[in-house]
Amino acid sequence: MKTDVWTRDKLRNLPPILLGTAIYAFGLHYFIISNELMEGGVTGIALLLNYIFHLPPSLSTLLINIPLFYLGWRHLGKESMAYTIFGTLALSFFLWIMEWLIHHQWLEPFRTNKDYFLVTAYAGLTLGVGLGLVFRYGGTTGGGDIVARIVQKARGWSMGQVILWFDATVIGSSLFFIDKEKILYTFVVVFITTKVIDVIIEGAYAARAFTVISDHAEELASQITKQMDRSATLMPAIGAYSKEQKKVLYCVVARQEMKKLKDLVRSVDPRAFIIINEVQDVLGEGFKPE
């Protein structure tokens, strides 16, 4: 029974991920590529290949991610990679759709030579909404996310730090091929995108703390360790009314893992009492190093 609910919940998340990748692909072609701006991560590498060799981003994004799929499948597991592979394939598909529409002149990208701030504002808004939807429903678009999760698991580094360094390296290397002015505008796009993502997934903090009161706390802690590669703390407690002894589970997760943990708790114990708190800062394994 739990497996049926789990499968149904997973399938329910796919349409928003599809919508998010479609919006993201539209923003890349309509605002970013048409004005030769940049992005970070694997998408940024695909844009560079497009600007230098005219290689379609739909193809290069997929080709770059294939070896990352293999690494993620080995080190992160099949279940963890399912949404990532789906999101990456969906992104490549919608990028191809946009390329087809532009090639047949059914879509005219927004180009400008004078008001790049308008372009950066709408590009950041569009990309942020797209990625925000993908992240909110448990998906990713591959690339830097896979690398960050592997490094986090192997070294204990923060995913945010790994992604930041990866993005900075890609954008920095584009200085050899793109005007400095456009690189500066790119940083504005990245900033706006990040803020919009925070709004879409309901929070500007790096993590959330879950306090769960459940009769199945030990089973839940075991599933969190297996399925999410996160640790949890079990604390003894006594019910004020029933006087029964219980165990309270406490767990801190990254913001993009919120929905996955909520779904996991509900699948193990639909009657669990869940409290979610914003966490302003987290030091330790899996987050920021001390």
Score class of each variant (00 low, 15 high):
F177M: 07
Q280K: 14
I146T: 06
W6M: 13
L76F: 06
A209D: 09
L18V: 14
L127H: 04
K260M: 12
H104I: 07
V147D: 02
G142K: 08
R136G: 03
L76E: 06
V252S: 10
G132D: 05
I197R: 01
I201G: 00
Y51F: 12
D229P: 00
V188K: 09
G286R: 09
F187Y: 14
S92Y: 02
H216A: 09
Q223C: 05
F69K: 08
T140K: 04
F187L: 15
G138C: 04
F26D: 00
W6N: 09
L63E: 02
G172Q: 04
I23Q: 08
L71E: 01
A204T: 06
L68D: 09
E278I: 00
T211L: 13
T61G: 11
E244C: 01
G44S: 09
L220P: 02
P15G: 12
Y83A: 08
A240M: 13
D198A: 12
L175C: 08
L101C: 11
K195N: 12
I200S: 05
P57F: 01
L220R: 06
I146H: 08
Q227L: 14
L63M: 13
R74M: 03
H216P: 00
V279T: 15
P56T: 00
Y122I: 11
D281Q: 15
V151F: 14
I85F: 14
G239N: 10
I66K: 12
E108V: 15
D215A: 15
V199Q: 06
R149G: 00
D269M: 10
M159W: 01
V147K: 04
Q105G: 07
F31K: 10
K10Y: 15
G138Q: 03
V279P: 02
T120R: 05
V119C: 10
M1W: 06
K246G: 02
V119M: 11
